[in-house]
Structures are given as structure tokens and as C-alpha cells.
Nucleic acid binder design. Structure first.
Lengths: 188, 188
DNA sequence: GGCCTACTCTAGCACTGCTAGAAAAGCTAG
DNA sequence: CTAGCTTTTCTAGCAGTGCTAGAGTAGGCC
């Protein structure tokens, strides 16, 4: 009984840590999330954070990154639902770039950390593999092997996300880039 | 007379800072390059660094990043020299990925920093614009506007570089990805 | 030789992630 | 209801970071 309530309290606090950390990171970047400010925001002292995440700040970032992969998978899957060929490619790509643009720091955590997981491998984190499968499904290329083309398409999406975030791309050409991408990878 | 010797001494020390910083960064990552270790390595104290680079560590990283852009431009230009169509695309892409793989931390500095420069704009840093022009020249796509296609191609190259470095791509499929990229962007 | 300028260093600030040991709270048993 | 024990939580501090004010030292000039 007591253990159950205790467990729920701990789970709740863990979620609070992740929620506050994400919120603050989106507001002022990852460097603005310090163990001190984070601890104060949840109403506890620093060591409590290490009780939940022994790996410290980087483990907190990794946890948020995993949540991000789940959200990205859901968003791209929903976007491609029921579509075929180039339309599916365009829709999935658009959803991907939108997620990255709307959650820049979460997205950066998803790729900045040494999570050590090769997308196309079977023994990867299930969430990563799931996300990769969606990309594979919209590469309308029968000549090449699909996983390889998917790796290239994912790279293009990732590059676009990073470079748009860094303001290296012309904002007004966003849809043109998406059309170009869909034309090159969307198959028939 | 004396001023000239003085100026040369200062220039030499500036180069020593950049050289040592790059060396150490390639050996142990950017975090291992601290103002203390860097100052000690060049035989001076920390404030001397700020005499050369008032912006501190980030300005040193920016300076190295600019050198990196110069090297990347030279490497890709040399690779594409005299080639046409898909062959040029493949060669340039290969040179690009090789540079990123051989200079991972310099490459990361080239894109991690807020240098604030949109590649396709005329008023960008000349070095950046020059590098972009090479990419434009190997996009054999007459239907789309070339700069937009070049932005997408650059994104794909950047994404491949980052994700290969992060071990998210299967290493044994590297040439297959390059062929796929050249096939999709190389034109006729 | 004496002075003045320009350079260089020492010492320290404010901040970071992280942790050992003290204090407090809560549960268990008598 | 109290005593003791376990678990949780906090205080205080370490080692390291980027950066800088002011003291000290070297150099060239008259």
C-alpha cells in the first residue's frame, strides 16, 4: 500500500523534473538548465535529481530525447497515414521539419547525445527503429535497397532541420526545399 | 622596424593558439580545450588568449571554423575539377564526407556556432558563399532553381556527416549512400 | 641612467556538475 | 506513546570552467 503511493510520488516527481527541464530548455537553451535551478524549480535540492537520474544532467537530457523520438514518430506516422508515393514523402518530411522547428532543443538533444544507436540495425532502441521504419516506408525507390535510401533521406531531413534552425537556409524557400526533396526521393 | 617584428611575433602567437587548440580538440574534443590548458600549452597565461581573441573560447572556435570552411572549399573544388554530371556530384560529395570524417571537431565547430550566415545569400561571408557555389555547380537539376536544390543537397551532406559521426548510419553502406545521393541529385 | 609605456602574470570571481556526510522525517516495534 | 531504525533530504563543499581586475615586469625612448 504505502509502497504503491510512494512509487507514484516518485514517478510524479520524475515527470516533474523532465517537464520543468524541457520547459526551461525550450525557453533558454540547455545551458540555462542547471542542476541548481532545476532542483529549485521542483522544490527539492540537487541530490534529489541524482536519485532519479544517477547519470546527472546528461541522463535527464537523454530521457527527454527519448520522449522526443516518441513524439516525432507519432507526428510523422500521422502525417503519412493513407498517403502514397510523393505525397506521402512530402507529408512526412513536412511533419518531420515542423517537429524539429517547434521543439528545437529537444530535437538537438535527440542527436547531440551519444545514445549510440544505428538506425537501420535490428538491435537498436525500439523507438528509434520505429521512427526509421516510417522513413523507409516513404522512400519510393525500388532500384536501390530501401534502408540505404532511407538513411540518405533521413540525413537530408536532419540536415535541413539543423541548418534551418541555425539560419543557414533561406526561410522563404522552405516549401520549395520540401518539394525538391519529395521530387528527388518520393519515387513515381 | 620593431613594430614589424612585433606584429610578426603576435601573428605567430595567434597561429600557435589556433594550431594547439585544433590539435587538442581533435585529440579530446572541444571540452578538453580549456583556457588554462591552452594558455599553458603556448607558454603564456590565460589573459594573453583574450588579447588575441576578446570573445574568448568561442571566438577561437569560430576562427578555427573559418579555417575549416576554407579547407572544405579547397577539398571539394579539387575533387570536382574536370568532372561532369553524376560523377562530379559523387566526387564532391565523397570529398565533403571525407573532410567531415577526418576533421570531426573542426566540422562540428563550423556548424555548431552562431556564425549567422545564410549560405545562399549574397552578403554572407565570402568563404561560405564560395563553398556554397561549389555545391550549386554539381546539382544537375534544370527543372528546379539550382540554389534551392543545392540547399537540399548540402543538407543531405551535412546530415550524413553528422549522423555518420554519431554512428547512427551503418558504416559498411557508406559508398552505397554516396551512390544513392549522386543518383538522386546528380542529374542526367 | 631614469622614465614611461605596453605587455604579462597572479589572484580571484561567479558559475558549473556533482557528492560526502549531517540532519530530518517517517515507519516499526515494544 | 515512546524508542530506535531506516529512508529520504539537505547543507556544505570539492574540483573544474570561462573570464577579468589590478599588480608586477619587461621593454623602448629621451
Amino acid at each position: 500500500m504505502a509502497e504503491n503511493a510512494q512509487a507514484r510520488r516518485i514517478e510524479q516527481r520524475r515527470n516533474a523534473i523532465l517537464e520543468v527541464a524541457r520547459e526551461r530548455a525550450e525557453a533558454g537553451g540547455w545551458p540555462s538548465v542547471t542542476t541548481r535551478t532545476l532542483a529549485q524549480a521542483i522544490g527539492y535540492s540537487q541530490p534529489v535529481l541524482y536519485g532519479h537520474f544517477p547519470g546527472g544532467k546528461s541522463e535527464i537530457m537523454s530521457a527527454i530525447a527519448m520522449i522526443g523520438f516518441g513524439e516525432l514518430t507519432a507526428a510523422t506516422r500521422a502525417a503519412g497515414e493513407g498517403l502514397q508515393g510523393g505525397e506521402a514523402t512530402y507529408a512526412v518530411a513536412e511533419a518531420y521539419l515542423r517537429f524539429a522547428a517547434e521543439n528545437p532543443v529537444v530535437y538537438s538533444a535527440m542527436f547531440a547525445l551519444p545514445i549510440s544507436a544505428t538506425f537501420a540495425h535490428a538491435d537498436s532502441e525500439p523507438i528509434l527503429k520505429e521512427a526509421f521504419e516510417i522513413i523507409v516506408s516513404v522512400t519510393g525507390d525500388p532500384t536501390d535497397d530501401a534502408p540505404t535510401t532511407a538513411e540518405v533521406l533521413w540525413s537530408a531531413l536532419h540536415g535541413l532541420s539543423v541548418l534551418e534552425q541555425a539560419r543557414r537556409m533561406r526561410p522563404e524557400r522552405r516549401t520549395a526545399r520540401l518539394r525538391s526533396l519529395a521530387a528527388h526521393f518520393g519515387g513515381s
